[in-house]
Design a binder for these strands. Structure first.
Lengths: 193, 193
DNA sequence: GTCTATAAAGCGATAGAC
DNA sequence: GTCTATCGCTTTATAGAC
């Protein structure tokens, strides 16, 4: 069945791509209109709060995806499976290094002030969920905490460096080093049966 | 002696702070005027090419600083001393995590296209200089290359995560892990005398 | 719910007075 | 070399036709 009126859920991912490509300030309504095919008037009908509302809803959507697909498995699932799941999903989500992290990008400039809580919560929960998962998998708490922080920050840095030198393999290699280090951490710290 | 006419070298660092705070698109002339105390007309007198010229000269200045203070020591100095020097200078340059990397920030959005070469060269030379330094210090080439990439990307990620969760200690901890890993790498791979 | 037209403000950039 | 005034253009945002 053909729907002529597009819904928020159809438009939002395209708006997100505009923010990824041009940044929050750089993504103008004319750019968003070009990318979505939806005119400025219609955009304001769907998002009365303008760009700020768009960005807020996009951040909420990203957070929701991460909570459902990564954080909750890390928090409640079988630790080793959740960990393995994370590596593959992260690689897929960030298009093997070809897609930046919008939350990380928003954290860099003054855009951060508008979305302070959302940015903080996203990264904080990621680090915490991963840390606790590692503890449940047998890691020592301090080592788990350090490795969780290391993991999240490596993913962000990998995306930057991959874009900077136009080599997505940088991200893949970083991800591979992470999963190898995780295995080493758990193999080393799990008490033998 | 009091100079009434400010020179480029006085203005440029302040313009850089505007770009750091608001991004390339977000840093308007009115913002730059507010931060520098120099009017738009005078800014165009010093930088006829406008914002693009400002950003280009800032990137060149940053690159020059890194070449002189980090890359050349890594390339030609005593390897272990150059390495130790890098950790302390990086910590100082990025204000212990309180200052972002402008080159990395520019790499994220469409700004990248304008400064493609400068961004690429900065990161590429950093990785290469560090990699060769590690080899000269006794590391195995493949391990050195991987660790160099890991180092540069960790610094970028550390700056993002520190800002995102408002905890500069994240950067300090990442830097500490790096210097520890470097020592371990060299201790492990240097043939015993 | 879609769009065009319009308003008011801000933008980069230029001209010219001092 | 400093500044203010001004020009076009684009921006966000609104109003209103269909």
């Amino acid at each position: 069945m053909l729907r002529l009126t597009r819904e928020k859920s159809d438009i939002l991912p395209l708006v997100a791509e505009a923010f990824r490509a041009f940044g929050y300030e750089g993504a103008s309504f004319s750019q968003i209109t070009k990318l979505t095919g939806v005119s400025k008037g219609s955009l304001y009908h769907v998002f009365p709060g303008g760009k700020e509302q768009m960005a807020a809803e996009i951040l909420a959507g990203i957070n929701g995806w991460f909570v459902k697909n990564l954080f909750e498995p890390l928090e409640t699932g079988e630790p080793n499976a959740a960990l393995a799941h994370m590596w593959t999903e992260i690689d897929r989500y960030f298009h093997a290094g070809g897609r930046i992290c919008l939350v990380g990008a928003f954290a860099l400039d003054a855009t951060r002030e508008h979305f302070r809580a959302a940015i903080h919560d996203y990264f904080n929960r990621w680090v915490e969920a991963l840390s606790r998962c590692l503890v449940r998998a047998g890691a020592e708490p301090l080592a788990a905490s350090a490795f969780a922080e290391h993991t999240v920050l490596t993913i962000q840095g990998g995306l930057i460096l991959a874009r900077a030198i136009h080599d997505e393999a940088v991200f893949s290699r970083a991800l591979r080093r992470l999963s190898d280090s995780a295995e080493a951490l758990l193999a080393c710290q799990t008490p033998p049966h």
